[in-house]
């Protein structure tokens, strides 16, 4: 079993041998962030989703709040005058709470399965018209997600990198290999919250930063509830 000291030595050796691989993470840290419209999440990430990178949002179980984050991001993107492409792996977007003006800035791709969703994101990442793409696999069954090969993510990352697209992947469990940023949501929303305003609920979501390739996040903001 390798010790922590061995791992540190290995990382230092890799940094010396392949400096350009690490400079990419440093370069991305200097890029501005994409605000999500969720204040605690933006504070945790140092302004928002790292622009031009992949972020994985893991929602532990139902009621974790990933749908709240998704809707906040859709609204924030529209307020910024941008467009968002949503690849909905299980066709689960709730359209009713979104106002009409915000909907006009959304491209919704309704997929019947995770495999179709991955094909759709492959097509969309080749299009330079969408600086922000969201792949929502939260409601896809575990059997479908287990069928996703690990080689899919590096390939999508190369496509995304070519266009400089910011990609957010929403999953029920850690899935994306080599992701730059992984944030875990673990708060369970309960029935009493359904009577509250959606904007106030965002402050009650529980975020935990598991992995960050850039060092922009403040050290004390590792966990925000």
């Amino acid at each position: 079993m390798p010790t922590a000291a061995d791992i540190v030595d290995l990382r230092r050796l890799l940094n010396e041998r392949f400096p350009q691989a690490h400079s990419r993470a440093a370069a991305s840290a200097s890029l501005p962030a994409v605000p999500t419209g969720v204040p605690p999440l933006d504070a945790l990430l140092g302004g928002g989703l790292p622009r031009g990178e992949v972020t994985e949002l893991v929602g532990d179980g139902p009621g974790s709040g990933t749908a709240q984050v998704l809707h906040a991001l859709i609204r924030q993107t529209a307020l910024s005058g941008q467009f968002l492409a949503l690849i909905d792996g299980a066709d689960s977007l709730d359209v009713d709470p979104i106002d009409d003006e915000t909907l006009t800035r959304l491209l919704w791709v309704r997929c019947p399965s995770a495999s179709m969703a991955l094909k759709a994101v492959d097509i969309l990442l080749r299009d330079r018209n969408f600086p922000l793409v969201v792949l929502d696999l939260k409601l896809n069954p575990a059997t479908e997600l287990r069928g996703i090969r690990a080689s899919v993510w590096p390939r999508l990352d190369r496509l995304r990198e070519h266009q400089g697209t910011t990609l957010l992947v929403i999953t029920p469990q850690p899935l994306v290999s080599g992701v730059a940023v992984r944030v875990r949501l673990s708060r369970q929303l309960d029935l009493s919250m359904t009577r509250e305003d959606a904007g106030k609920i965002l402050w009650q979501l529980h975020f935990e930063l598991e992995r960050h390739g850039a060092s922009q996040a403040s050290p004390s903001a590792k966990r925000v509830a």
Binding site: A67, Q68, H71, S92, D94, D96, I98, E196, D197, A198
Partner: peptide, 11 residues
């Protein structure tokens, strides 16, 4: 007006 909480639709 307060915004309702979005659900995840089952379709």
């Amino acid at each position: 007006l307060p915004r309702p909480l979005p659900f995840r639709r089952l379709r």
